Simulated assay, not measured.
Amino acid sequence: MIRIGIVGTGNIVGISHFHTLGLLCDGRAEITAVYDTRMDGAREWAAQHGLNCRVCGSFEEMLDYVDAVNICVPNAFHCDYALRAIKAGKHFLVEKPMAVQIEDCRKLAAACAEYGKTNMVGFVYRFSNAVQQARKIVREQIGDVYTLSAWFGGKRLADPSIDLEWRMVRKRSGSGALGDFGSHLVDLADYVAGQRYSEVNCFADTFIRERNFGGVMTPVENDDAAAFIARGSNGIGSYTASRVGMDDVMVLVTGCGGMLQLSLRSPQSVTYWEKKPDGGYTGAVKQYELAPQKPFDGWFDAEMKSFLDAIEGKPSDGADVAQGLYVEEVLHAAELASQSGKTERVAI
């Protein structure tokens, strides 16, 4: 059995909850230790999940009892825990973003380049059946990609009466909707369609500029929404990310052999419009009906399987830290473009 440690238990139903369910569902792993800065909260969390594991008083203590670490702490602490896992020679999975500052992302990637253990970044939307089917269609039928359009976001924070949260504070979260939602879209563009970008332009804005914090109206420090376009050797991508009003993941890909659309609003199907590579669209439209998969639970089950596969040296669909750095470099260039008003080059 692979011994897993969970760092950052947080809420009873949070990211660590889905990690745990996925690991237990797989059967190859045992959660042997957990750590959270709130030790009483960690004990309660472990009990709620029926775990007979060690509740540790420090991260270093936890490392003595595990082979691999799942890092589910707030964004600002991702890099530090990942570097400590590397130093201890442990496999790790860190939730995105791998760090808040681009310099720390680069530092972590450099450390992983000399590292012989599994390193993975949590881009969970890769593991939806709809995304897997779309990837297959691109490879087998569409071929060369022309354009990719996508959006992703949420609606909860459209309410201005919601108090200031950690995700609205730059030193704790980094960018806002651009990083929170845009990161998944940039990763999906590469994973589904093989699009990797070298230049980006972007507009970003904060529409609810102040929120209550402890009875005082306090500035929101990052973007509520962003729209960006990007270009690379394999076509053009256009994106919208918003935390103040946007539907679930939608991706539209066009290319030499046709067009496809997936929406995680309706994750049981993917639509493909047929086109002859040397001609036009034929009029044929195929609806791919997919096996049922519960959103979040099913995706995390597949992601944890991929993590354990990688630890065992098997092929894995997980994104490694090098991919995580690429995504953050694209988003960093997008944020620079939103400030400069000019197209910015991606550092990688």
Rank of each mutant, 00 (worst) to 15 (best):
Arg211Tyr: 11
Gly182His: 01
His184Val: 12
Leu178Cys: 06
Lys155Pro: 00
Gly182Gln: 03
Leu178Pro: 02
Ser183Tyr: 02
Ile208Phe: 08
Leu185Pro: 02
Met120Gly: 06
Ala158Lys: 09
Asn129Glu: 14
Phe123Val: 13
Phe152Met: 01
Gly122Trp: 03
Asp180Ala: 14
Trp151Pro: 00
Leu148His: 04
Asp223Gly: 00
Ala150Lys: 01
Gly176Leu: 02
Ser175Asn: 08
Arg156Lys: 13
Asp144Pro: 00
Val192Gly: 06
Arg139Thr: 14
Val124Arg: 04
Ile137Gly: 02
Met217Ala: 15
Phe123Pro: 03
Thr147Cys: 12
Val145Cys: 05
Ile229Phe: 01
Phe123His: 09
Asn129Phe: 10
Tyr146Asn: 02
Pro160Asp: 10
Ala204Met: 02
Tyr146His: 06
Glu221Gly: 07
Gly194Gln: 12
Tyr146Gly: 00
His184Phe: 06
Glu210Val: 15
Val138Thr: 08
Leu148Tyr: 03
Gly176Lys: 04
Trp166His: 04
Tyr146Ile: 10
Asp144Phe: 11
Gly122Pro: 05
Ile162Asn: 14
Pro160Met: 08
Gly176Cys: 02
Val121Tyr: 05
Gly153Pro: 11
Ser233Lys: 14
His184Gly: 07
Ser128Asn: 15
Arg172Met: 08
Ser233His: 11
Lys136Met: 12
Ala130Lys: 06
Val138Asn: 04
Arg126Asp: 06
Gly116Ser: 05
Phe207Val: 15
Phe213Met: 11
His184Glu: 11
Tyr197Gln: 01
Phe207His: 11
Asn222Tyr: 06
Lys136Ser: 14
Ala225Phe: 11
Asn222Trp: 04
Ser149Thr: 15
Ala193His: 09
Ala177Asn: 07
Leu164Phe: 10
Ser149Ile: 11
Cys202Trp: 00
Val138Ala: 05
Phe127Asp: 04
Glu221Thr: 14
Thr118Arg: 02
Leu148Arg: 00
Asp190Ser: 15
Asp159Tyr: 10
Ala225Gln: 08
Gly174Ala: 08
Ala134Asn: 10
Pro219Trp: 09
Arg156Ala: 09
Asn129Gly: 06
His184Ala: 09
Gly116Gln: 07
Lys155Arg: 06
Asp163Lys: 14
Cys202Gln: 00
Leu178Ser: 04
Gly154Pro: 03
Leu185Glu: 07
Trp151Gln: 07
Pro160Thr: 13
Arg167Phe: 11
Gly116Asp: 13
Lys117Gln: 14
Thr218Pro: 13
Lys171Glu: 15
Val138Arg: 04
Tyr197Trp: 13
Ser161Gly: 03
Gln133Asn: 06
Arg196Pro: 03
Leu188Pro: 09
Phe203Lys: 05
Tyr191Asp: 02
Asp190Cys: 09
Ala150Cys: 11
Thr118Tyr: 00
Asn119Lys: 00
Val138Gly: 08
Asn119Glu: 07
Arg126Gly: 09
Arg211Phe: 10
Asn212Tyr: 05
Leu188Ile: 12
Phe152Val: 03
Asp190His: 13
Arg135Thr: 15
Asn212Val: 06
Asp163Ala: 15
Val186Gln: 01
Val169Lys: 13
Arg126Gln: 08
Ser175Leu: 00
Ser149Val: 13
Glu140Lys: 12
Tyr191Gly: 03
Leu164Lys: 10
Asp163Leu: 03
Val220Asp: 07
Thr147Arg: 04
Asn119Thr: 15
